[in-house]
């Protein structure tokens, strides 16, 4: 029903995932596979850019939870950035901001890795 796509960039050894479209229970496994592939390949510093994502379902949130511990154990992190208000509300409601780094801009998220 909806389109969802992922675009991957690399910036100074940090993988940046650009999500766009609608992320729901049916296509959240796409994102999951993508994250798994990156982590298995040894990339633990990941920034997810939500600027083009229109909608996220609770199953989509679960994907981040599945890997956050893995990457944190390897001193990496998954940082989330540039959420629209609507998407942020969903993350906020579940209490994500207290557990994850959610930043306004992508640059901020990348800067945070350098600290």
């Amino acid at each position: 029903m909806s389109n969802f796509s992922i675009e991957i960039r690399e910036d100074r050894n940090i993988k940046i995932l650009n999500l766009s479209g609608y992320l729901d229970a049916h296509n959240s496994n796409e994102l999951e596979d993508q994250l798994k592939e990156l982590i298995d390949a040894g990339f633990t510093r990941i920034v997810v850019n939500f600027s083009n994502l229109n909608y996220i379902a609770s199953a989509g949130l679960g994907v981040f939870m599945a890997y956050i511990e893995d990457v944190r154990e390897q001193s990496g992190d998954i940082k989330l950035c540039e959420m629209t208000d609507k998407v942020y509300t969903v993350f906020d409601l579940l209490g994500f901001p207290v557990l994850y780094d959610i930043t306004r801009s992508e640059l901020e998220a990348i800067e945070k890795f350098k600290v």
């Binding site: 939870m65 579940l94 209490g95 994500f96 207290v98 557990l99």
Partner: peptide, 17 residues
């Protein structure tokens, strides 16, 4: 009110939230 989903973190981590 502030609150975090069940299963997202240990009780020790989320108690204050």
């Amino acid at each position: 009110s502030p609150g975090v989903g069940i299963g997202m973190g240990s009780s020790a981590v989320i108690e204050s939230k």
